[in-house]
Design a protein around this nucleic acid. Structure first.
Lengths: 214, 214
DNA sequence: GTTAGTGGATAGCGCCGCTATCCGCGCGGA
DNA sequence: TCCGCGCGGATAGCGGCGCTATCCACTAAC
């Protein structure tokens, strides 16, 4: 397959493909001459993965590169790949770690995780992200919404258990690796969309003055 | 309060505040002279809300403006505000609606929502976002991860019910409006972070070869 | 009266994700 | 055999976004 065909099958413009090659998200095709190369199904799959990470998952090109680099490390056990995938999802830090209200928000999240017996590395950046949001709730005087935290944790436990089981059921390490990345990033998009749909429903049930929902 | 003080209390630079004024995310202070104005606690709160939406929620400035405009529409019932908040969260469309695999992914999501009896407007853009992700799973040959869909829906129902109940418990419409916006946007950030933490735990329990987690 | 600071306007910057253009070469059809 | 399209590779540029810098006339505070 040459680049034009790759472009047609993937729905990605040739300049974009060249861009991804330059940025090392995509490996070069196997050269068949001085200025001719052949691309395979692997390239097509990879391109679809890139577009999914960027378009659906909302990753930046740099983040996608990090995720893909982790995917390409064959000896990386799936559990550590998960950490790599999460690491690449991190948007730059927002809050100042010296802000005492932020620190207490973070401590609160750590306490919640500890209370549930989750075994997570203490300096995992996800704590910081959760703390950003918790601190924002507090700063905006929306403390009562933090009553939902345990429910969030319940929901998180529920979906994480299911996802990890599904991925592990694959058995084959290479496919587990793919599953970790796609499940983490695309699963987030699905969950967020379903949550918003469920909110619409819950809100309609409670707030819309009507008897004829049928 | 003058602008310097507003800047200090909010941790936002004066040029940024001026930028938000220009972009109409923030209303002008009450003028006390030809080139002097006074800002109140409302401005400080608003600025904190802006930063939370942009930094924590990941909204663009334009999306934040739309959300804030909805918040400022006093007669808007909370249920419709929810729609407005969701609308502002929409990233630009990705998939072509003519793509049959995308259409079938969307139909699948609609069927799931129908089966659960959720009452949601059929052309809600959240369907499209979910469809994007589902279609991506399929395109990447990760169909087995779609077995998690029901679990995602369970989790979504769980958290949405709790969130909506919490907001409704406030009673006062103005505070409900605040709760809808912050709950939707910041809650998403919390849920996503907790899900990733839970994934780390689930993955560690099943994949890490160790007996001494203590 | 001096000076730091103000609101307001305009222009510019830095990053990001592409996109356009050019180049010398090879492949494929007549 | 020759021609012309397409190739790969490289470099430069573009458009949008979220600020940021500068300038201005003015004024409150010392």
């Amino acid at each position: 397959m040459r680049i034009a065909e790759l472009s047609r099958h993937s729905g990605t413009s040739i300049p974009s493909i060249k861009f991804y090659l330059r940025e090392r998200l995509l490996t070069a095709g196997t050269a068949t001459g001085r200025n001719q190369a052949e691309y395979g199904d692997g390239h097509l799959y990879r391109l679809r993965l890139i577009r999914a990470l960027i378009d659906v998952g909302g990753l930046t090109v740099a983040a996608a590169r990090d995720v893909l680099a982790a995917v390409d490390t064959p000896e990386l056990p799936p559990h550590f790949l998960l950490g790599a995938a999460h690491g690449a999802l991190n948007r730059p830090r927002r809050r100042d770690a010296d802000d005492p209200s932020w620190r207490s928000a973070r401590d609160e999240v750590v306490a919640l995780v500890r209370a549930r017996g989750w075994h997570v590395d203490d300096d995992c950046p996800d704590f910081d992200h959760a703390a950003d949001a918790v601190a924002a709730f507090r700063a905006l005087g929306q403390d009562d919404l933090l009553e939902c935290m345990e429910t969030y944790a319940d929901a998180a436990e529920l979906v994480a258990a299911r996802e990890v089981d599904t991925v592990i059921a694959r058995g084959e390490p290479a496919r587990m690796v793919e599953g970790v990345v796609t499940g983490t990033i695309l699963g987030e998009a699905v969950l967020n969309a379903l949550r918003r749909l469920a909110q619409q429903d819950a809100s309609a049930r409670r707030l819309v003055d009507t008897g004829d929902l049928a």
